[in-house]
């Protein structure tokens, strides 16, 4: 049971890191960035290429992957989303879906649909033993990475000038502009951070589930989106809690009821939570004004 719980927290941590990207972008640009899941996939391929073709050490590959995804995030925002700043949210949503198709099919052309086997970058680390339970190194690293990212992000949004600018823009774009905040730059930065996190999530995900294909990011992307809504979209701690809960439910359900696809439980719990708390677990309640 303990193993399931820890594996669940580990998978949940990956969801949480992805969900952070969703939630930050949603908070600031009020858009559902459906291409986020595919940025994870690009991150995975970037790290894979750095290690397999260039022979770089894993640490350098991770940095390379983060750099690639950060750039990709900024480029996507500039080319596809920025021209639609004033358009309806549905128009932006469809554009995001277009970007998602584009990334998946570009990856299909470059790397083909044959799965690439992602190397275990934590192979040299021994697994941790607690009683009978054995916990692999990647699980521990994932959970630690999640905690570090969480603390770093909380400090960043709370203490730094850029973080404060982000919160200001998400609250009121017009007022933020009047206060001398460069709104476009702030939004670009948010995309950069979200995509950088997606790269980390991509590497962790691919280490745990080594089959890398162009659609690798799609399902974790949807799950992370669910996690972000679960915790209350726009809220950073909410994304974290939502992600971890989702991971735990998925792994425990898979272990206890193997005959039924675990996704049923994941989505059923989501529906129940949203019916009881329609703004997510930590969502802000916005009162309606007439």
């Amino acid at each position: 049971m303990l193993t399931y719980l820890i594996n669940g927290i580990s998978l949940g941590s990956v969801y949480a890191i992805i969900a952070l990207g969703y939630t930050m972008v949603y908070g600031i640009a009020k858009m559902l960035n459906f291409a986020h899941g595919d940025v994870i996939m690009v991150g995975g391929y970037a790290a894979y290429c750095a290690m397999a073709y260039l022979g770089w050490p894993p640490a350098a590959a991770v940095v390379f992957s983060i750099a690639v995804c950060t750039m990709l995030g900024i480029v996507i925002e500039r080319l596809a989303y920025k021209p639609l700043r004033e358009a309806t949210s549905l128009a932006v949503l469809i554009t995001a879906i277009g970007v998602s198709y584009f990334l998946q099919n570009a990856a299909l052309l470059i790397w083909s649909s044959n799965p690439k086997i992602f190397p275990n970058i934590f192979a040299s680390m021994p697994p941790l033993k607690i009683g009978d339970a054995q916990i692999s190194a990647v699980t521990i690293v994932t959970i630690c990475a999640n905690i570090i990212i969480m603390i770093a992000l909380t400090l960043f949004t709370g203490k730094t000038k850029m973080g404060k600018a982000m919160r200001a823009v998400s609250e009121d774009k017009g007022a933020a502009t009047l206060m001398g905040i460069n709104v476009n730059f702030t939004i670009s930065m948010t995309f950069a951070i979200g995509s950088g996190l997606a790269a980390i999530a991509g590497v962790l995900l691919c280490t745990a589930y080594p089959n890398l294909v162009p659609t690798t990011g799609a399902m974790p992307g949807i799950k992370a989106f669910v996690a972000a809504v679960f915790g209350g979209i726009g809220s950073i701690p909410g994304a974290m809690i939502g992600g971890i809960l989702l991971g735990v439910i998925e792994i425990v359900a898979r272990a206890l009821v193997p005959a039924v696809p675990s996704d049923i439980f994941v989505f059923a719990v989501l529906i129940i939570v949203l019916l009881i708390k329609p703004d997510g677990l930590l969502g802000r309640k916005i009162s309606e004004k007439v």
């Binding site: 021209p83 639609l84 358009a87 469809i94 554009t95 879906i97 277009g98 198709y101």
Partner: peptide, 18 residues
């Protein structure tokens, strides 16, 4: 499918950009 994606993005940009 790549062309399809590009067509989709371009149409959205052309019809929704002010």
């Amino acid at each position: 499918m790549l062309v399809y994606a590009i067509v989709l993005i371009l149409v959205m940009l052309l019809t929704n950009n002010k």
